[in-house]
Design a protein around this nucleic acid. Sequence first.
RNA 1: CGGGGCGUAGCGCAGCCUGGUAGCGCACCUGGUUCGGGACCAGGGAGUCGGAGGUUCAAAUCCUCUCGCCCCGACCA
Length: 574
Amino acid sequence: MLYSRALIPTVKEAPADAANASHTLLVRGGYIRKVGAGMYDFLPLGLRALRKIESIVREEMNRAGAQEILMPALLPAEYFKETGRWDVYGDTLFRLKDRKGAEFHLGPTHEEIVTDIARREIKSWRDMPMNLYQVQSKYRDEPRPRGGLLRCREFLMKDAYSFDITEEAARASYETMRKAYCAVFDRMGLTYRMVAADPGAIGGSTSAEFQVLADSGEDAIVACDNCDYAANVEIATVKVGAPPDGGSAAEDEKKKVHTPKVGTIEDVSKFLNLPKDRFLKSLVYLANKEIVLAVVRGDHDLNEIRLARALGVDEVFMANDADVQKATGAAVGFAGPVGFKGKIVVDRAAAQVKNAATGANESDQHFTGVNMGRDWQGEVADIRLATTGDACPSCETGKLKTYRGIEAGHIFILGTRYSEKMGAQYSDEKQEKKPIVMGCYGIGVSRLVATAIEQNHDENGIKWPMAVAPYQVHLVTLGKEENVATEASRLYDDLRARGVDVLWDDRDERPGVKFKDADLLGMPLRITIGAKSLANGNIELKPRTEADPKKAELVPVADAARVIDERIKAALRA
RNA sequence: CGGGGCGUAGCGCAGCCUGGUAGCGCACCUGGUUCGGGACCAGGGAGUCGGAGGUUCAAAUCCUCUCGCCCCGACCA
């Protein structure tokens, strides 16, 4: 492509509304433009990057034996009503009505629709395993779209669905998809971790997220420094370990201590000169409108999702100040398990603390010498938030470390959750009707455009990995000398004949402008042809990852096309 | 939904407090000089000041309502 004819509207200044690197660089580089909150135009370069990623995903899905289909984005309400998600999805669903007043919505995900295909078309155990996928725009009325392409209301997603006869067979399909996902992210050159995750609104028994590591990521994950344990902090667990004092101390007498106006663990710890791990942190929660006291060790934080799981509810809400006062009879900061009227859930580590300090359910009063069993009772569960330094739950010596991640993919074993509700059954060898066992697998294709940039950029611009770069080569010509144009034209044609994607900056611009734009746009290889090096029969070759322009490699004109072609092929193999 | 902020030329912003000719930088157009890391000179075009209502002789500026957008949180495959 000739730059002079291309729509690549680069801008010097960052857009006022951009909060992260990928958003800023995509707009500055003329890749995308905002149409509304969470809605973007893909300009030519942006679309090329998107298509490259899409192709990689398609190739790996096809290689894994999945078959591409296309379902509508506009859907009648009846399917979501069948499974109850018409109500469960709530405000996230874009709902609309047709001219007759019939209800429709835009598809946020397609389990129901694909299950409808399955119940009509899959009849026998001989028809499975089967995996159907599509690459399609999805619509979700997100509470808060953000980060440019990272969280949009309309976004491109690859969603695949597997159909199997048994849970074991479904696990094999899941494993096939896991490998395909690794292949996709490996080919894109991303650094990522597969982590155990919460299935959320999709449901199902097993799920894993593919988290691309980036400081700007919305998700927190923990990973072991020794083994392959990794999990979203939402569901991460830790090894309990020994209690802080070794657990051998004798039980002290319980005492009430006056602690005027010191409600936080931090303050009370100083006030009583007692380490934080000897405190019981008591938090008042509402679960299905029932008041519950959650108790964790003073140096730990509560994991709300784990608390909800322990209680067997969908979600829990922290009680407001008024409810806390009503439940404990004390000001906020003085709640404790001793004498608490209501359900108490205590974390495993907190249950081990002997002679603990805790709020006395009385304003400005704490207890010390509190012992579970003797002074109070509670249901023990795993409800604390994992964090850096915690002991790994699945190996002997490992320590957990927290990372930020961007969720690029999520795979689930759904079981029969959808097939039972929608009557998707097959006949087995004995003519018995059984529900199809399903799995589903998503990749955020448009999100990956931004994700690749979050992981590959510097202060000057994008540094595209070869596999997703809109153009593999950015050819810069300097000056108006005739031989520069002649050699550039020859190289341009030669590279294109070899199937190389080349962007030729043939504009009548000063060198500085061209170099700045080349760095901003971020194509992996930059070729410079100017009178200076051409006088010795050379062109200049510099990878975008090399920051120092003086380190550009001189390549004889005659070898240039071959050398560049080889570099690209090597980069794609890596 | 809670908290905070912003809507003025294509983009980034000033002007608003204290009402009175709408401004700066970038981008764009014309001419000239320049040309290996975002050049310079001269000239020029371009704005319903988000929208509606109100106060006033007079509103970008004050008041009311409203729409949109961003950030933090809640929420979210």
